[in-house]
Amino acid sequence: MTPSPVVSSLVQPTSTVERPPAPLAPNSRTFARAFGDVRDGWRQRELWGHLGWQDIKQRYRRSVIGPLWITISMGTTALALGLLYSQLFNQELGTFLPYVTAGFIIWNFILGVVTEGTEVFIANEGLIKHLPAPITVHVLRMVWRQVLFLVHNMAVYVVVIAIFFPALVGEYRMYEGDPIMQPGLSWAVLMVIPAFVLIVVNAVWVALLFGIISTRFRDIPPVISSFINLVFFMTPIVWHVGVLNKVTGGEGDGGGDWRMLIAELNPIYHYVEIFRAPLLGHVQDWHHWVVVGGFTVVGWALALIAMRNYRARVSYWV
């Protein structure tokens, strides 16, 4: 009796079918993924631009004058510090108050980027877990918010310059005995535009790097908050670098070089100076640009390494 086709199929050995190997899981720890996150974050400008603007509106909700409180607070602080330290250091108010104002404006931006940058991912825990977006979006949102704050604060600079404009036009010295004659306000003030763009580029890598580290190690934000006030007083914002030579008898005593290291070894000083110098018509010392450029390259390299290794873990750490 001939076996049925069904029985034949059961007794006959089945042929081995070669299946293609399972595709490997994409490796997320690559520089391509890190660059892609930054690129995709920049492309979503409409998203982080809207979120950053809404942050400011939410902060001053139900306020009568709204974001103008930023300008009032900034102006009051700059005026108080300018009046106080001009008397302490025996400097002309007409040149010293604009100096303090311009320095304090850019310091507020740097302060906001550093302090909020350490908690940028922690503060956006809900969005990170529920919104499929590059982590760079949250950094750009925070930096954009700080840019809007700085734009508000620039109104204080405009008012101060309008009041003390005669003292800043033409050559002048910052203090009596200053060996450097400042050229005064001119079209060189436009150099503040590339300076600020460079500072914003640095702000992004600072927030990315410190944000990732702080998300893993939660002790970093309070440590930075503890030391940030010390950095403020160590940075030439409410005092001029020439004071370092005046307080101990001038450069002739042989100690001027090491005293200048107090300012030169402070990276914040160079960021402040490339922004403040054109606003006041000061001599542009190009070594500040070299230092800031070097920090830009090294900082972005470190930020990309951190993103390459730990970008995918941020959502778990928060």
Rank of each mutant, 00 (worst) to 15 (best):
Y310E: 09
G256S: 13
V151R: 06
I268M: 12
I70Y: 04
S225C: 09
E46K: 08
N266E: 04
V206N: 00
G117L: 06
G170R: 07
L97F: 06
I220G: 02
S63R: 12
W300L: 09
S214L: 05
I163M: 08
Q54F: 09
L111S: 08
S8L: 15
L47Y: 10
F275D: 00
H50M: 10
G249K: 06
P183H: 08
V100I: 09
V17L: 11
L168I: 02
I220W: 04
M260H: 09
G36A: 07
V272S: 00
Q87F: 14
L51C: 03
G94C: 10
T296N: 11
A188H: 04
L47W: 12
G250V: 06
V189K: 00
N27P: 04
V114W: 08
M74V: 05
E92Y: 07
G170A: 09
V7A: 12
R39V: 10
Y269L: 01
G184T: 00
L190N: 05
R39C: 06
V11F: 13
W107C: 01
Q54M: 13
G177Q: 14
V291R: 03
E119Y: 04
V147K: 01
W144C: 03
G256Y: 06
V11L: 15
Y85I: 13
L265Q: 07
L131M: 11
I56H: 03
S63G: 11
P222D: 14
G75I: 05
D285I: 12
V156M: 03
M307N: 05
V290L: 15
Q87G: 11
G255W: 12
H138E: 06
L93I: 15
H287F: 12
Q58W: 10
S225A: 13
L150W: 02
R141V: 03
V114N: 04
W187N: 04
D257V: 12
D219V: 12
G294M: 08
L198G: 06
V197T: 07
Y175P: 01
